[in-house]
Nucleic acid binder design. Structure first.
Lengths: 243, 243
DNA sequence: TATTATTTGTCCGTATGTATA
DNA sequence: ATATACATACGGACAAATAAT
């Protein structure tokens, strides 16, 4: 774990160190022992005081990632970074399914509104056309991995929110409404610091990073059926693209 | 720009505010006036003292994103985000080419070494096989957009660093060495805070976010020819995947 | 069983950075 | 520019729990 931490940057040392240790755990750096190196060693490696390392470990313990035991060391409790494949047949629930026991999609809120210019462009509707907007959070084993704002053509998918609430999956909700198959047309990926809404929805702490996708799904004729802006906790997921 | 900043989280308020303003600029929130709202208004919106907003704006000015002018306001100097398409025929220079006038790839350093387990796995070599490692930075109009560590099978691509230094492009360097075409096999995408090496190579300020790709290119027979870990400034780049 | 080394937990004090007024 | 409050970071000393000898 090379590379030093930086001082006087507006990001506390303990937070930089917590981010680095979390990353190292997720990369499998400590798989042999199942433990984080001793505080004194980490302090030496990062060039900081042991107390500063302790602050970082306390933050990771708060997240449930490690558990410090007096006299033994700091045990790794959870080591997760879900892999999310982005393909023509991208499916959230099925894509994550093998990596977690329970996948759930929860509906936070929904409304019917008129498409603004951006939504209309992606869904190939005229601006002002009626659309359904849904705010959702998806959880793997009760840990939130992403939150999304999604728009759907209102006429074609009347009643979608109620069906989604029951099925907890877009794929199954589409199937219930007569759309048996759909494909991913385009995906845009960016990254940013989590905003206040992300922090609440994803149970993150300020300074956390989110991977943001803007994606369009179409039916097999190429007609857009969904436009979604999804925000993933960067600590908990990675994307793969297979060509 | 709704949502409050958070205190006592290891991330200073001025940095949270700087990140939010940078994001708003990049999203086009102030395109009408070309200016950031007055400090007093921002302070009120974020619920902080005006001095704290001034610290945030000073950081953005240091990055060259805004310029504060006494008596006028805070002018937006730069507002950019390059689009980087990820396809089976991903080409850095050609992909960015239409969005910038001059694309350059600069060789920072190179060496011949033995493949560790990770590199060997991706390149489908045995561990310990000779590989060429190159550290590069790519710039669009003299602004760095990514830095990369790339590995190549040493026997097949002897002399690659010298050719790359001359051609400033992997595609052209491959062509010079007899590989006329190649394709992108897999791409993994994650995000993290920039480390010290990123800050230097990409001319970023501490706390900045990098998008990280791990990618393998193969020849047309599916034999791996390159494994690269590339780090993009998240403020300057977005990815698109077309299926 | 007792001893020792290792490792985390707690306490003191001091200096600097952050944020407000 | 000054004053105040709190968070961050450091340094040292010692206590408590665990594992190995």
């Amino acid at each position: 774990m090379a590379g030093q931490v930086q001082r006087q940057t507006g990001v506390a040392l303990w937070r930089q160190i917590a981010d680095r240790i979390r990353q190292a755990i997720s990369a499998g750096a400590y798989d042999e022992t199942g433990m984080v190196p001793p505080e004194t060693l980490l302090a030496q490696q990062f060039g900081v005081n042991r107390h500063t390392v302790r602050s970082a470990i306390a933050a990771l313990a708060q997240e449930g990632i490690v558990r410090a035991v007096q006299g033994r060391g700091t045990l790794i409790e959870r080591k997760e970074r879900l892999n999310f494949p982005i393909t023509r047949r991208t499916r959230f629930t099925a894509g994550i399914g093998e990596q977690a026991r329970a996948m759930r999609g929860l509906l936070l809120s929904h409304s019917e509104e008129r498409a603004d210019e951006e939504v209309a462009r992606w869904l190939k509707l005229r601006a002002g056309a009626p659309v359904i907007r849904m705010e959702t959070v998806r959880k793997a084993d009760d840990r939130p991995v992403s939150c999304a704002t999604a728009w759907f053509p209102a006429e074609r998918f009347a009643g979608l929110p109620a069906v989604y609430e029951k099925t907890e999956s877009i794929t199954r909700a589409f199937a219930d409404l007569g759309l048996s198959d759909y494909v991913r047309a385009t995906t845009e990926i960016t990254a940013a610091h989590a905003d206040a809404a992300d922090l609440a929805a994803l149970e993150l702490t300020p300074g956390a990073i989110v991977l943001i996708t803007k994606a369009v799904n179409t039916d097999l004729e190429g007609v857009p059926v969904q436009y979604a802006i999804t925000r993933f906790s960067a600590d908990r997921v990675q994307f793969t693209i297979e060509n």
